[in-house]
Design a protein around this nucleic acid. Structure first.
Lengths: 154, 154
DNA sequence: CGCTTGCTTGGAGTGCACTCCAAGGTTCTA
DNA sequence: TAGAACCTTGGAGTGCACTCCAAGCAAGCG
């Protein structure tokens, strides 16, 4: 089994669980405002993503209006996830370029994702450390609140 | 036991584990560049934090240069943790104001910290979701890499 | 057909969190 | 006591990620 049997050249592939509120493949031509509703991004941001090279070429209607596909929505889902990690947009653009360049960039994409994965793990650890500090302070204030309350009731 | 027995009016209190590279209390007068070395912040940022009200009043030498104390370093440690959570600086300034206003703001501080705690938990969950997506993609690329390798060796 | 709502563009503007600058005073080491 | 290294200020500048604007074309409805 070759890679080409499961993936086209233009995709990032391995989409994951199917998304809600989508039209079936073949009838998937969404206007920009529909994509706004589906993703929570603004139309401004969607056009800006395109300008900076974070999106693949988006289909156009015969009069030049954007028509997004399910594949584009999958890509936006991934971008959204990466954005949550704090990955700079420039790095996401780099990843998008690798996808556009074709299958021979699999290795580099793999490395980029692994690095990102490590970053996310480190970030989770940082947050856990912060959580410990917060919990310590919260229980301090809870105790202080009880002490003040018993003071007032005396 | 009253609150005042364990806490002074000017502090945020409950410092947690002692920090490294510090001088003992009583000899704790650090220049701005020492604080830079201890916190990793820049001198610019330290002065800016002060201007926007994120720091308490910092002691000055007889000629007007800043002299930070261990207490100030504790505060900067907390600010650093809160910053990691993505809390906006404006919210941290709000918290700093509450601390300056005295003990009667304990309740509000408690609420603010609890809200922050919830935010951190939500953030960790988001990151775990992202991690799942990354792991799925990473294993896809790992498989693809193996497939391409066996292709080449045939 | 006219009307409203939606979509197009390049370029300018916004908000956040720093980050730097110039000009001058201070502190430390030899 | 000279010189290097450090510190002070207000205000201006930077980089990121959007966010908005104006002017005009497109789409759907009665």
């Amino acid at each position: 089994m070759t890679v080409m049997e499961t993936t086209g050249t233009r995709t990032d592939t391995c989409a994951g669980p199917p998304q809600q509120n989508r039209r079936p493949d073949g009838e998937d031509r969404y206007t920009i405002s529909e994509v706004v509703a589906l993703t929570g991004l603004t139309a401004h941001t969607l056009r800006w993503y395109e300008r900076i090279g974070l999106m693949p070429h988006i289909d156009r209607s015969h009069t030049g209006q954007r028509r997004y596909t399910n594949r584009d929505l999958d890509w936006l889902d991934l971008v959204g996830k990466l954005r949550l990690t704090g990955m700079p947009v420039a790095d996401m653009v780099r990843y998008a370029e690798l996808v556009r360049e074709g299958d021979h960039t699999y290795g580099e994409r793999f490395e980029l994702l692994k690095t990102t994965r490590e970053d996310v793990l480190a970030r989770i650890d940082e947050l856990r450390g912060t959580l410990a500090v917060l919990d310590r302070k919260i229980s301090f204030y809870a105790d202080a609140g009880r002490a003040l309350a018993s003071e007032r009731s005396r």
